[in-house]
Design a protein around this nucleic acid. Structure first.
Lengths: 256, 256
DNA sequence: GGTTGCGCCTCCCCCGAGGGGAGCCTGGAT
DNA sequence: ATCCAGGCTCCCCTCGGGGGAGGCGCAACC
């Protein structure tokens, strides 16, 4: 006689609420062993307690239900481990993010407004090897790292990236990671521009600290121009805190 | 001339999306310096970049917008620190939760089904000192700890708690933390009951591992009875992993 | 024989922090 | 004259359920 445990009893055994159990049923995550056709009453079996407990533990790790489903459906323990490890990686990077945010917050509270030394520069159109992909702003770091690693280097210039304005206004856009190369090896042309440039020292995650003063400077002078922003990375191999990055904001002309 | 930076420009400076900025405006979290009455166009000022960055950092810490508002509105740095520390505590406890979940998951994957040794026992109505409060299941641990610390002890019996069925089925209910005392000092009576009892060794957070087999046992015998479940805590002063807890499930009668 | 009341059901709306997109307005460039 | 960029509002969607309304069937109680 399959399915003998009513949902309320099952809830007590698993410490999952009735609401949650019905939700998991609807999603096909944990189907009661038997559902009465007339009344719709759910009936569970004792051997479903373990999967239910697994779900509960994974939810305590904030794993999305879709991933939990994948994990439970995976027939092979290897696949399960893969999903699990992927999630633990996510947790880990969330932790990193938290640590960085705390560090940034501390700087924000401790220091007064830093201000930025801004220079102006006109650059010609430059042939480069590059990779373009539509990414969210939160994924820019990993994308650039990956893309830059895949680019050739013939010593023509530093690594860089182009960020369209929509990336900032809408949070997603076509980012181009590039490195200048001799014309023969180029896959794209970094457009000519007149730029206001500020130097950022430190982690890439803290670049907003330089964008603020730079942008304020540019708009205060009324020389802001449309077009993608760009960043140039001079010491990607150095320690996180020692990296020098140029942030370049398009302008119509160098003031005065 | 207050308010000169349009929202898109401000988004580039702060790395907040236009959507997010409008959302913060609606909530009164970050009001543009100026809003055109006719067109509704928002205009920000350069000195709003810093508060915006603060918001961004706090959001990276998953602080709720309401708390961020409190923090920004707090005139006194002491108040700010209080809100901030409270949030860091929350993060910390979230981390604890994660660690526990990982440990529980490991046990779940490593060990086969543990099974539970179940005994039966009838207990008489017992006078006790107790505290009752409506709590969510996730807050049961802190509540019991706090309540038990406030209860008198005359050596009559071990600490315990009563959990109504709705606590499990709906996730919230009136929990009673108690300790048996001589009649004169009693504030409530723990009701008489016939109980199926299983012993749990280890952390309170892992008690569901004992509820499962115990409940399965009880329902398999068909002797489940209505009424609150109870737990008795024998070694609350021992190390987390060494604590002995009796989980008591109401039954109609001891089988055979 | 009513009438509670429990345990279960479905259905709908709600949260938080925005994302996605439709549809409109306005100003500047072509 | 037309197009587009960039702004606006409004509405629906996400995810993991919580809260509650309203209904069904069964058991116990008066």
């Amino acid at each position: 006689m399959p399915g003998t445990i009513p949902i309320g009893e099952f809830a007590k055994m698993t410490h999952l609420t009735v609401k949650a159990l019905r939700h998991y049923h609807r999603l096909g995550l944990l189907e009661p062993r038997h559902v009465d056709e007339r009344s719709g009453l759910r009936a569970y079996d004792a051997d479903q307690v373990r999967p239910a407990r697994t779900i509960r533990r994974l939810r305590e790790l904030d794993m999305p239900l879709a991933d939990i489903k994948d994990l439970l459906d995976a027939p092979h323990p290897v696949d399960r481990d893969r999903v699990l490890l992927a999630h633990l990686d996510r947790l880990e990077s969330g932790l990193d993010r938290t640590r960085l945010a705390i560090a940034g917050l501390r700087r924000l509270l401790d220091r007064p407004a830093p201000g930025a030394a801004v220079r102006y520069r006109s650059v010609p159109a430059t042939p480069a090897a590059g990779i373009t992909r539509r990414v969210r702003r939160t994924e820019v770091g990993p994308f650039c790292e990956e893309a830059h690693a895949a680019l050739p280097d013939d010593g023509t210039g530093p690594l860089g990236a182009l960020f369209p304005e929509v990336l900032f206004t809408e949070g997603v856009g076509e980012v181009t990671a590039f490195r200048p190369v001799r014309t023969a090896a180029a896959t794209l042309v970094v457009p000519a521009a007149t730029l206001a440039v500020a130097v950022h020292l430190g982690r890439y995650e803290d670049l907003d600290e330089t964008y603020g003063p730079l942008g304020a400077h540019v708009t205060a002078l009324g020389v802001a121009a449309p077009g993608p922003l760009r960043e140039l990375y001079f010491d990607p191999e150095l320690d996180l805190d020692a990296r020098r990055t140029e942030v370049c904001w398009p302008i119509t002309h160098a003031p005065r």
